[in-house]
Design a protein around this nucleic acid. Structure first.
Lengths: 226, 226
DNA sequence: CGAGCAATTGAGCGGAGTCAAGTGTGGTGG
DNA sequence: CCACCACACTTGACTCCGCTCAATTGCTCG
């Protein structure tokens, strides 16, 4: 892992991200001041549970998996972060220690912002605080969604849900490309890879065709009531 | 449900709560200005998913269950709130609509704060924003814990965990009283009531004795490695 | 063309949900 | 004071979903 300064395209990605776009311009500039970039190969560990954390991470490209370890070594995914998403804001306001492990699930490029500085900016500028509040609420809702899905839905239902969440409203049939390996999707949905595979099989009879990473939906209705 | 003004003991409970105690004094006073109180019987619904939400709720006494409904009518608990805990901050920064249902799981007294006002205070005073940030991070972590436990632990392990989380560190044997009905605990742990019952049975062989709502632990070691 | 990894499929098992019956307990009223 | 009822909880029997392990297929890239 090498650490470098930001290129101008890095800056562009950051400034267009959901989080930065809600940030006051001056604050955004200030944070970019001390920012660095690191590159990682697939399976690189970014940090481990209980590690002290000094940076907030932003995915510039690639994919980061956040997971916890069970006593037996099994892994449970908490979240998966894609381009433009922010990791580690939680810890900034807790005890500054990671609550989970983070691992690159693809070759990835990561921006590192000084969390001290961000914290300080939030304490000076309510605009920054506001952006952080919205970010946290959004994350919170996603985690709650995940928890509810785990408890209410079967594997095929979860997968159907996931597919529908990628469907533009109003379209009856459509197709899209999975943004990552099926392995990762399985983790994100709280399933073993085999279970995901079987779920796709089951959904075939509802008009879902899977070829490689491309998902094709023929009958949206059938999916919705699954 | 009747709505009243705050009594002085209500104010005391609020001001001692985790959230208010982190709030600047003037802001706390300002919020209490427009606050009201409502009382609810067991099973009363406080709000439903997708309801527009104008108030942030604080539990003064009793218990509030937050849950989502599956298509088949099954319920999945997202969180359970006890005295002093705050409900509905998330929605304040999203679309102001409830992401779940809330129900009194006991006869309960609830304080209602104007979320508009709280939101405005957060936009003026970074101290308020800071308190909200900490609150959200704390909630976020709890939800993540929950998700990870669901995915990593069996029913007896979850129960063992719950018991240990109520154990003062360093004590080898101890006992405590469940703060609510087993029914509610089951929901909180994502279990059917029967599964909770069976889990307690299993844990008996590790030195857990359950009598009514009182849990007694004889051998902490045994629990920890369950 | 072959090596290696991703994904699928099959067989078997175990955990937890469901339904149904039983046990206990606290509260009410005779 | 006791009988009875209501309700929380427990226990049993059964089913089913999803995990595990293992074998196979299919891809991708050297």
């Amino acid at each position: 892992m090498k650490t470098l300064r930001l290129t101008s395209s890095d800056r562009a990605i950051l400034l267009n991200s959901r989080f930065f776009s809600r940030l006051p311009r001056t604050a955004a500039e200030a944070i970019l001041e001390g920012a660095h970039v690191s590159t990682h190969e697939e399976h690189d560990t970014l940090f481990r549970q209980d590690d002290p954390i000094d940076d907030v991470l932003v995915v510039l490209s690639g994919l980061v998996r956040l997971y916890r370890l069970g006593k037996d070594g099994r892994e449970a995914d908490i979240a998966v972060f894609q381009k433009g998403e922010v990791i580690g804001v939680n810890t900034m306001f807790l005890d500054r220690r990671a609550t989970a492990n983070a691992q690159a699930a693809e070759p990835s490029i990561i921006a590192r912002l000084e969390s001290r500085k961000l914290h300080q900016l939030a304490a000076e500028d309510t605009g920054v605080a506001q952006a952080l509040l919205e970010l946290l609420c959004h994350h919170g809702k996603l985690t709650e969604d995940c928890l509810a899905e785990d408890r209410l839905l079967t594997a095929p239902q979860r997968v159907a849900n996931y597919i529908l969440s990628h469907c533009p409203i109003g379209s009856e049939s459509f197709s899209f490309r999975l943004p990552f390996q099926k392995n990762v999707l399985a983790g994100k949905l709280g399933l073993a890879p085999e279970a995901l595979s079987r779920a796709f099989s089951t959904l075939r009879q509802s008009g879902v065709v899977v070829k490689g990473r491309v998902i094709e939906i023929r009958d949206r209705q059938a999916l919705e009531q699954f």
